[in-house]
């Protein structure tokens, strides 16, 4: 794969990430890792719990938005941080993920929403690439 799994790109008011992966599963994993690096959630000591998430969407871009939203929703409503994430692709625009959650100790920043602005999952010689804008 050419380039970093994710990198922040300039956006005047909000935050944007370019994410890459050799395949759909890697793209989804790197998008999650990138978003969580922006949020800077710190897990607290305590019991870890493993949860499964299954998503199917009409296309890969929508899958990307729904996947990241799912993580944001769990983080906000369950007050958890993610200590491990495994993703496998299920079809052309689906995924099955296993996430390990820990109680949330602190969080560096809030992300309000994952947007579709300019979003497209593009095929590159090295795999897949997308640029995601987050409303903060």
């Amino acid at each position: 794969m050419t380039g970093q799994p994710f990198e922040e790109v300039a956006h005047t008011a909000d935050l944007a990430l370019r994410v890459r992966g050799v395949d759909l599963a890697a793209l989804m994993l790197h998008a999650a890792q990138g978003m969580l690096s922006l949020i800077q959630a710190v897990p607290a000591p305590g019991q870890r719990q493993t949860t499964s998430i299954a998503l199917q969407s009409p296309d890969r871009a929508e899958l990307l938005v729904r996947w990241l939203e799912e993580l944001l929703f769990r983080m906000e409503t369950q007050a958890v941080a993610f200590t491990a994430i495994h993703v496998t692709a299920t079809g052309p625009s689906g995924l099955q993920a296993t996430i390990e959650e820990a109680p949330l100790a602190s969080i560096g920043r809030a992300i309000k929403a994952v947007t579709y602005h300019g979003l497209a999952v593009r095929e590159t010689p090295a795999g897949l690439e997308a640029t995601i804008v987050f409303d903060v």
Binding site: T12, A13, D14, D135
Partner: peptide, 9 residues
Amino acid sequence: VHQGYGCPI
């Protein structure tokens, strides 16, 4: 005005 998403802010 500044860059937003969809419409500008």
